Computed example of a mutant assay.
Amino acid sequence: MSGKVGPLSRLYNKIIGTADIYVPTKMRPFWEHAAGPKTIFFWAPLGKWVLVLAGIGDINRPAHLLSINQCSVLAMTGIIWSRYSLVIVPKNYSLFSVNVFVALTQLYQVARAVRYQRSLKDKPK
C-alpha cells in the first residue's frame, strides 16, 4: 500500500471524528467495538440487508420469473459467509445474522422455483 490517505478516507475520518464527540458514555462500548460503526465490519452487514429485503420482495414474484442459479448462488454465499463471520476475529454477529437471512430467503426462492419446474413436468401434455 502506498500509505497515502484518499479524499474519501479523509472525509470519513472527519465525519467519525465529529460524531465521536457526541456519542454518549453508555454507547461508547458499542462505538469503540472492533465491529462497531467506526469500521467496515459494521457498515457492510448493514448494507447487505438490502439483499434480504430484495429476497422478501421476490416472494410475490411469479415462480417462473425466478432464476434458480441466481437464488442458489446467493443462498450458498449466505451460508458460506455465515460460517466465516463466526470464525473471524472479532466474531461479527451482525454479519452472521444478515447472511443467515440471505440464505433463508434465497433457499425459499429456490424451493419455489424448483416446485414450479416440477409442476410443469407433472402436467399432462
Rank of each mutant, 00 (worst) to 15 (best):
F42H: 02
F96M: 06
Y116L: 03
A54H: 12
V87W: 05
D122V: 08
V87H: 08
F96T: 02
I15R: 15
A103Q: 07
L107H: 02
D58S: 07
G78P: 00
V50D: 05
L74Q: 03
W49E: 06
S85F: 01
Y12L: 13
G3Y: 04
R115G: 08
T77S: 13
I40L: 09
K38T: 03
S119E: 15
K38F: 10
P7Y: 12
V100R: 02
S94W: 15
Q109P: 00
Q117G: 04
Y12T: 10
P24L: 13
K38E: 05
S9G: 10
R115M: 09
K91Y: 04
E32V: 01
T18H: 15
W81M: 06
G36D: 12
I59S: 10
M1V: 06
S72N: 14
Q109C: 04
M1S: 13
F41Y: 15
P124F: 12
S97E: 10
K14G: 11
G55Y: 01
L8P: 02
K123H: 11
G6Y: 14
K26A: 10
P124I: 08
T105M: 04
L51E: 11
S94A: 14
W43S: 05
I15M: 14
Q70I: 00
V50T: 10
C71K: 12
G3F: 05
M76E: 12
A44T: 01
N60D: 11
A75C: 06
L46F: 12
K26P: 00
A34W: 06
L46R: 11
V50C: 03
I68H: 06
S67K: 07
L8N: 14
R115I: 03
L11Q: 13
L66E: 00
L65R: 14
A75T: 00
L95H: 09
I40A: 13
L95A: 09
F101T: 06
D122W: 15
V50H: 08
S82M: 10
L11F: 13
R28V: 07
R118D: 05
A44C: 05
Y116N: 04
S82R: 04
M1A: 14
S82N: 06
M1T: 07
Y108T: 02
Q106M: 09
A111R: 12
T77N: 14
L95N: 01
W49M: 12
V50A: 14
S97W: 15
S119Y: 13
P37N: 03
M27Q: 12
V87T: 13
G78S: 04
N99L: 09
K91A: 04
G47W: 10
D20Y: 13
V89P: 04
G78H: 00
L51V: 03
G47M: 07
L104Q: 08
V100E: 02
S67D: 02
V98D: 09
I68Q: 07
L104R: 05
G47Y: 08
K123A: 11
V52L: 04
K123V: 06
G47Q: 05
K38A: 02
